[in-house]
Design a binder for these strands. Structure first.
Lengths: 161, 161
DNA sequence: ACAAATCCTAGCAAAGTGCTATGTTTTCTG
DNA sequence: CAGAAAACATAGCACTTTGCTAGGATTTGT
């Protein structure tokens, strides 16, 4: 029942954007360095987030990303849906037909209730709230990050929250 | 974020037990037939449930399973913990050290809140409630199940809720 | 003794996850 | 206008997890 790195890394990216002064751009490469996530992988993740429409991207030199909407209007249900693909705890909740089991499915009601519960929690949780909740200073880590030497031969990335 | 078949099939097994008249035994093979789950696989799942102590097993001819405690005293948090291994949405919530990230982790508080939320829902959901919630008649399906001919060569099991 | 049930271990095919590699396109800068 | 820096895009691959099978050992009723 673990969430994938896609969701976790995507969240971190969004939190960086939310912590940014409005109007400014944040580059993907910089976030990848600071969060110690593979840049290529983070690109994929950010791309999955694009259809939601919460990102504003500027291409070319000096480009980067910014939030297209205020953080208070971005809820976690939407974000999770795009990053994780789906939230439902069992597959047949999302694929129309109520599974080919004869008669009524004994556990369906339970899974539906659990699904509703999760979604409600996520829907009422905004990026704004998350950003306020975490009282870390993004600048502190990045200041030291410059001194990091990449270990040649072999990925140095470690799974994070 | 899907739950595995272990948890889903395990739940179905427990629901069968809960629907059984108290004092009687239910055989694993029979449940497997009626629920169309591989008997061998269901055995593994039931075994994972044993350490919880909610099952009473009788070996030998005429043996079977029964609930060792009333269904009203069996909550889903315990059941899920044993079937799924862990519930936590991210790994570092269960492995002591708060991940090697420099400074405070920006998303940790959120994952903890989500974890608490899920657990609370599951803890307050008892097998009794689930059993009452599902108004299907387990006997109806099993009556017809006798006529099933197993398809030779190739598993005929299909994933269920 | 035999059969019927629960117990137990190892292994394996398929799917999913996490990431790398290799580009293409856009845009700013010298 | 050349080049660099950024976002955009696709394919593939090693590793892990999942879902199940095979084959047996042990216990107990008839």
């Amino acid at each position: 029942m673990r969430f994938s790195t896609r969701t976790r890394y995507g969240l971190r990216f969004l939190l960086r954007l939310a912590a940014q002064p409005p109007g400014s751009l944040l580059q993907l490469g910089q976030v990848a360095r600071e969060e110690r996530i593979s840049p290529g992988y983070l690109e994929q993740i950010v791309r999955a987030l694009k259809p939601l429409g919460i990102l504003k991207a500027v291409r070319g030199t000096g480009g980067g990303y910014a939030l297209a909407r205020p953080a208070s209007e971005i809820n976690m249900e939407d974000v999770f849906l795009h990053l994780e693909g789906e939230i439902a705890p069992v597959r047949c909740l999302t694929t129309k037909k109520p599974c080919t089991h004869e008669g009524q499915c004994s556990t369906r009601a339970f899974w539906q209730a659990l699904d509703r519960h999760m979604r409600e929690f996520l829907r009422h949780c905004t990026l704004q709230e998350m950003s306020e909740q975490c009282n870390n200073t993004p600048g502190a880590a990045s200041a030291r990050a410059g001194g990091q030497r990449p270990i040649p031969g072999g990925s140095s990335y470690v799974e994070l929250h």
